Amino acid sequence: MKKITTIIRIAFIYVGAVVGAGFSSGQEIWKFFACHRIHGLYGIGLAGVFFTGLVPRFFVLGKKIGAKSYQDFFYGFLPPLIAVVFDIIYSCFLVGSVSVMIAGGGTVFKDFLGLSYYFGLFISITFVYLTLYLKTEGIFTVNNILIPGLTIITILTITSFFRTQQTDVFDGFLPLKIKGWQPIIDGLIYGAYNTVMAVAVMTGIVAKKDDKLIILGGITGGGILFFLCIILFAALLTAFKTVPQEEIPMFFIAGRVSNKMYLAYIVALYFAMISTGIANLYAFNRRITSLLSISYETGLFITLFIIVPFAWSGFGNLVGCLYPIFGYLSLFIILYYIILLFKVKNIKKI
């Protein structure tokens, strides 16, 4: 029973590291997959290979090389200058992601609850800080509650939406003429970016876990992510024949079901952003504490001061500036991980 619990806890933290604002809002799934109509399934399949195939093995790889945080991947196996560049890029990934999630929390309070954006920031930052103050136990506890809730609400929203449709659901799957390899390229970028973020978060968390449990937890979490991608993809294709005008397409879909489902999805989206913000800030804090040789608590205080000015810039501005850049840079980091995977001794055990 204890082993099953460990697998589930690993899976939920992994999911929590990925299902942030872009994923749960439907924007990422549209831009990377659904915009290609039926051809987007190629990209989703490729992302599924990252989620369930590569990511769990990278988790175990970190344990095998004794990595306590993401910089240990770089400084132990790369020339110093390249290691520094990768370290800076990775840290920017995390700062950018946390800023986006906290800014998204402020936007939810402002646009959908009618409250102040800055009040939303304050509540979001406070929740993140209190959770992380409890260290890994706080992360495990929060994700064990939030991720099942998010998954259930997403499934209920989409299945209820399908039941309200008067036309054939599969009409939305009609193919469009596309340009070459773009669905595959988008799948690579999406899978690589989310792999980079998940590895950053999970490296320290799974360091003391059994290899087999890490693999099973990673596969379980990856399976949940792949399933959520598929059902979000199907819902978006059904709901939108052209590019969605809504900033958060899933709110449109939830609103078509009922007011109660709309409100439930607002709550689900908010906590999806917060869970990702918690996971990524934990990874960044481990880097700061290692770099400055300070305590976990002191590092947490410093990291929040680094994050807040970026969150002040607003959700939309951050997404537009940061995500495209990070997506392409992630491909280079993933290539490094794959090379390292084959260099590590006893690789057959992974």
Rank of each mutant, 00 (worst) to 15 (best):
Q71K: 13
L341N: 03
G43E: 12
L46Q: 03
K209A: 10
F33P: 10
E247L: 08
G222D: 00
G320C: 03
V199D: 04
F233S: 10
K68R: 13
K3Y: 13
S258F: 06
T154W: 09
W312Y: 14
I338W: 08
C229G: 13
F140E: 12
L146H: 05
I266H: 02
L41G: 04
Y337H: 11
R9S: 15
I147C: 02
V19C: 06
G180P: 01
Y70F: 11
S97D: 05
T131F: 03
Y90D: 11
V100E: 01
F315W: 15
G180F: 00
I339P: 03
M101C: 13
L263Q: 10
I155N: 01
V98I: 09
N346Q: 14
Y70G: 10
F33L: 02
T154N: 11
T238M: 06
N280G: 12
V84R: 14
I88T: 06
V257N: 00
A11Y: 00
G277K: 01
L130W: 13
F252C: 03
H39T: 11
L115R: 09
I224C: 05
T242S: 15
V344Y: 09
Q71Y: 15
G104H: 14
L113S: 03
V308C: 07
G120F: 04
F127D: 02
V169R: 01
V100T: 13
L269H: 02
V100S: 13
G191T: 00
V49I: 15
V308L: 14
A83E: 14
S330N: 04
E246H: 05
L78A: 07
F74V: 05
T141A: 10
P183Y: 00
G218T: 00
N317V: 11
F73C: 12
Q71C: 08
K208H: 13
L331P: 10
G66N: 14
G187C: 03
N194Q: 06
F33T: 07
R256Y: 05
I123Y: 08
G120H: 02
D72A: 05
F305I: 15
F51M: 14
F140D: 15
G96F: 05
T126E: 06
V267P: 00
F233M: 07
A103E: 08
S258N: 05
N317C: 10
F93Q: 09
L335P: 04
T276V: 10
L54Y: 05
I38F: 12
L213V: 03
T52P: 02
G26Y: 00
Q27S: 10
D168P: 01
Y262S: 04
K348E: 12
G187Q: 03
T289M: 09
R287V: 12
C92H: 01
I231T: 10
G105P: 04
T164L: 07
Q166K: 07
S99I: 02
P244E: 04
E137L: 05
F240M: 06
A67K: 04
I8W: 12
T220P: 00
A254M: 01
